[in-house]
Design a binder for these strands. Structure first.
Lengths: 161, 161
DNA sequence: GCGTTATAGTTTCAGATGAAACCTTTTGCA
DNA sequence: TGCAAAAGGTTTCATCTGAAACTATAACGC
């Protein structure tokens, strides 16, 4: 990256990651929106429920790394479109129990293979060895890397406001 | 990644990238905001101008991968706080000529090393070989990978709306 | 039991965002 | 020249977003 010292945005790791990630996400999001009227948040909820029916809103939030407000809103829209249904947990009436409707299932069945195709296409520019490294680097950065970043202390104020 | 077929959000490359990128960005953004009252967009503009004084708004947009609306707003706020100044290009009065003020420069001088520290901290969990691969993978994915994704054709409608 | 605290989820409010419309200056060209 | 089209930026509008406040239910401590 930067051979350290001067900061160059184009070379700055967080910036590069953000650029890569946003470009990919937007390309996919555009298609979800155009074909199914699905936002990214709705798509994530759908994807998780397609795999694990019966989750509560909170559990969906965990698995999608969305906050509960975002989940609540995505769920509301999916319900309005009858793509999911909501029941109440027996034994805890605060908890919801979410699952795809047949309509939601049909959308999921179309969207999921599409998503995998995007992934395949992206990975296709990498050879086998590179893919292994990618997996390894992603895991390491997501695990230890994020922990390290989170441990960085805020420096003493010095407010240059 | 997915050994293909079933879609599992946690294993899905675009999702993992987005998660990693957002977590890092948010950690840094929180500090910019707390210490300098800088949003990410403002910070990006500042970073680019700290390195290349005299750019126009459009040139800033290119280098930061922000759209011109976002740049316009970030510039407006930075101007209001007297962190940058704006001149008019001699010979093209549509064009702006942006540069840091001394105040902006002082902030840049504090923020830039901090940004590099975040990057260092993140990279610290990787050994030398891994860093080389990271560089290589990022370049490849950002170049060919994104091209490949962009080439994916939209499938015939089939609207399951 | 019964008040206090915690948890699941929704709503509100205020700020951020992107697309499209807009204004101004410049460019291309008949 | 003079006018249509393009380019640099800004504003508007409708939507999205997160934090904090709020509602309803459940769990805890006595």
């Amino acid at each position: 990256m930067n051979q350290s010292r001067q900061l160059d945005l184009e070379q700055f790791l967080p910036y590069r990651l953000s650029l890569l990630s946003n470009t990919i996400s937007q390309a996919i999001a555009r298609e979800y929106e155009a074909r199914f009227g699905l936002s990214v948040t709705e798509w994530r909820v759908l994807a998780v429920l397609g795999r694990y029916a019966g989750l509560s809103a909170g559990e969906v939030a965990e698995r999608t790394a969305m906050d509960k407000v975002a989940v609540s809103r995505a769920v509301a829209r999916l319900l309005a479109n009858e793509r999911i249904r909501r029941g109440v947990h027996s034994g805890d009436r605060r908890r919801s129990v979410l699952a795809l409707t047949p309509k939601g299932q049909r959308i999921y069945d179309q969207v999921a293979p599409r998503a995998l195709e995007y992934e395949r296409e992206l990975l296709q520019v990498l050879d086998a060895e590179e893919r292994i490294w990618l997996e390894r680097l992603l895991s390491k950065l997501t695990g230890n890397g994020l922990d390290a970043v989170r441990r960085i202390p805020l420096p003493r104020a010095g407010a240059a406001r």
